[in-house]
Nucleic acid binder design. Sequence first.
DNA 1: CAGAAACCGTAACCACAATTACGGATTAAA
DNA 2: TTTAATCCGTAATTGTGGTTACGGTTTCTG
Lengths: 204, 204
Amino acid sequence: MREDTKRRRQAQIEDAAYAVLEEKGYAGASMLAIARRAKASNETLYNWYGDKLGLFMALVDRNVGEARASLEESLSAEDDALATLRTFGPILLGMLTGPRAVALNRAAAADPSGDLGHAIAKGGRETIAPILEDVFRAARAQGHLGFAEVDEAAELYLGLLIGDLQIRRVVGRLPAPTAADIERRSARALEAVICLMPFEAGPG
Amino acid sequence: MREDTKRRRQAQIEDAAYAVLEEKGYAGASMLAIARRAKASNETLYNWYGDKLGLFMALVDRNVGEARASLEESLSAEDDALATLRTFGPILLGMLTGPRAVALNRAAAADPSGDLGHAIAKGGRETIAPILEDVFRAARAQGHLGFAEVDEAAELYLGLLIGDLQIRRVVGRLPAPTAADIERRSARALEAVICLMPFEAGPG
DNA sequence: CAGAAACCGTAACCACAATTACGGATTAAA
DNA sequence: TTTAATCCGTAATTGTGGTTACGGTTTCTG
């Protein structure tokens, strides 16, 4: 099988797996159900992904890769750091509270090995935070914000942006926020950050 | 069996269930494993709790009940609303990030029915927020804080206090924060709230 | 105390899913 | 075109856990 044909086929299988996961949850997303949805055989799934955990690790890796690409694209669109945050915030929040991310988070919570959770943490938060820190450094350099520790500044912003919304989505079955909710929350997080970290001109 | 003897026995069974849940996760916490740990029989568990979900619903209900009692106790200890928040914040954050709550949240994330998640939301956040709103009203009445909508004020505080810490504990396998981390985070949440919602004397 | 109820420890039943295997069809490579 | 590899659809194997059942023991009730 040619490499790009295989990749295309894998993408089809993985799309089917996402769909079954969102409909039936992790326990209900049997390999057979996924194979049937993808019109593939169990043997192919096991040959290509090793086992159920391997397939779900691939789903997580793909999802965090796509999220990172999407966020990085939003970064290059703006010169002004605050404008960047205005774009970045709703995109990040929308992804984190969307049905696919919620389903993957639930799978990770259910996974006794902890591997899915570690992969989500590594490709998710641990990848996003440094990107965000760069934006905060730019915001400081541009005279918008003042803070001592950039990691704390980014963490504060994430706390305000995400808050306990994600856990309530994943665990507490909160419905997805509307696009208007997301925009409002993102805007308020940014306002709060500007208020809490006023720019201070000069050394010190 | 006398009522209080039964309650005592149930508490033993539930303690065993919490222990097995924390050690093996939800999927690994079979009814038989719990029965063995509690030196009870499967038949008794099914007679008393109906089924596995029923047992876990009882665990959630007990946990939120104990949490509420603990938080309400912290409320009556202080007259000053900000002092109350100084006490309340670390207690709440410690509970949410503790091993039992994390294990129950993971169980709820894994539960295809959504019932555990709804029970956690109802007995947890939906119970705590009104309590916290009362504290915020008192803080405003005492001249510490100024805000228009009390529900938004409480939500802002929870966002700063909890942030994405809980989801990273439940999903991303973050280790539990230290007591010092919890105190620091709680104090900073309170500082931020005071900064963001300054008291404004007079009508308006 | 006697009889009934309930509990314990264990086994049995059943369903389900992870994983492997198989025959035939399809695809890829030479 | 031929041959080999791989994929599909399906079945088989195995293990596990949810749930029920059973005989004996313990506890409860009148």
